[in-house]
Design a binder for these strands. Structure first.
Lengths: 248, 248
DNA sequence: CGTAATATTGATCATGTTCAACGTCGGTGG
DNA sequence: CCACCGACGTTGAACATGATCAATATTACG
């Protein structure tokens, strides 16, 4: 049988992500797969999936590519407040608030599933493991957000960059997107800089410093971590806040 | 009839807070009041209510005083990731994650209600408006956390301080703790500095700058905002992220 | 090959930190 | 009542970190 190429629209990342938080029932997995299959969408690089102030009425689950949540201040300063990686949802439950308070844009071409509020609620009602997993995911997003506050408030530039690389490694590993010590790092240094509150120039210098110390290799879009322990020490990184009990 | 002094253990702030998010039913208010009354606790200044890594099995609702969520890096740097103000809950729903990933400490003497997981779930099951309001509160906490990332990542020191003062004003107003243009500001400048990622010294200078421009008055523990519009402009502040539709 | 986007480099500048001293205020014990 | 004490606030000066600006590679890709 010929190998069916993965077009990036598989529900696998979402299943892995949620399954890392709660053991999903077989029924739950089936419901999730069906729901996702019915709502596949594509986004081009730089496309905004939703903008600050838009009404929310549904949930999206990212299947491939990277998104970011961000806000832009009146004078143009941009801050990325989080990365959305494959398997993550955007806005699960956020519809309770009616409007979104930030924008979400595609840092790379992306594939995601759009789930209507009705379908989402039906799915949660139908399978408790799915419902709990989505709630956990929402709570963990908040935990990541807290960690970023610490990152920006109290870590030096070098520590921040190292911390981001550690976090991405752990999160991508959960959804099966780490290959050995390497993962695909598809964003520009400027994007990454906007996530850790640095200028693009300084981000570049910090990456070079990490390369110079042989902690990482960044060639093309592939990031390799040569020395996990030292990188974690540099970052003062502890994965506890990711709460990935079942997967880690 | 003699006026009964408010001992700081009234459920009022919690009712106001939740009611700002969802119109609470009369029954819901009654349940909430009963549940709170049954779990009144006191905390001394500097007391940790819970520490990083502790198991969570319940919810707390702050009734008076200020708490903070914080983490300390190995070398002692502290970052406050959020302030918990009267009416706010700590850890509503966080028990889904099992353990807490940060510590919570009392910045002032505080009164709060401790609600067991069972009692909390019973309350939510009993009244839908309460359940929704608690979920909204959790989601708004996450929104505030995002805004703090922007604060730390892309605002200057002066902007950050101004932003914090604006946020506190809005949040305290919702729960009835603003008197005209003034509110009680019971924390040290060092605490505030740890919230906006500055040194204590620089926090002091920024406050003086705001005072020098006549935007604020800070005398003793009372903070007065003289010129809201200019302060908001200075902070690039917009209250949208607080999602307080019903109260604002 | 040509072009635009991204990465890299050096030099200068600005913002905020650190350190150390001093001031102020409220409480406490003699 | 007053001296003392500790916590907090305030000040100045030197220093460090990271931003900004401007130029120059490098890369991806049509």
């Amino acid at each position: 049988m010929p190998h069916r190429r993965d077009e990036g629209n598989s529900a696998q990342p979402a299943i892995r992500r949620l399954n890392a938080l709660r053991e999903l029932s077989d029924g739950g997995v089936a419901i999730l797969e069906n729901t996702i299959r019915d709502g596949i969408r594509h986004a081009a690089r730089d496309e905004d999936l939703i903008q600050e102030g838009d009404p929310i009425d549904g949930v999206r689950v990212l299947l491939s590519g990277w998104l970011c949540r961000y806000k832009v201040l009146e004078d143009g300063r941009r801050q990325i407040v989080s990365f959305v990686l494959p398997g993550d949802s955007c806005d699960a439950h956020a519809y309770w608030l009616g409007r979104i308070d930030h924008s979400i844009s595609a840092l790379t071409p992306a594939v995601y599933a759009e789930i209507s509020r009705a379908a989402f609620e039906a799915m949660l009602a139908n399978d408790k493991s799915i419902a709990e997993a989505f709630w956990c995911e929402t709570l963990i997003n908040a935990a990541v957000q807290r960690e970023w506050v610490i990152n920006l408030g109290r870590r030096s530039a070098l520590e921040r960059v190292a911390h981001l690389l550690c976090e991405l490694y752990e999160r991508l590993r959960i959804v099966g997107l780490v290959d050995g010590n390497s993962y695909d790092f598809p964003v520009t240094q400027t994007d990454a800089a906007d996530a850790v509150g640095l200028s693009g120039v300084h981000m570049n210098r910090m990456l070079q410093e990490l390369r110079g110390s042989d902690l990482i290799v960044l060639r093309g879009r592939t990031l390799t971590i040569n020395d996990h322990q030292t990188l974690k020490n540099t970052a003062l990184f502890s994965a506890d806040y990711l709460h990935c009990h079942r997967a880690c």
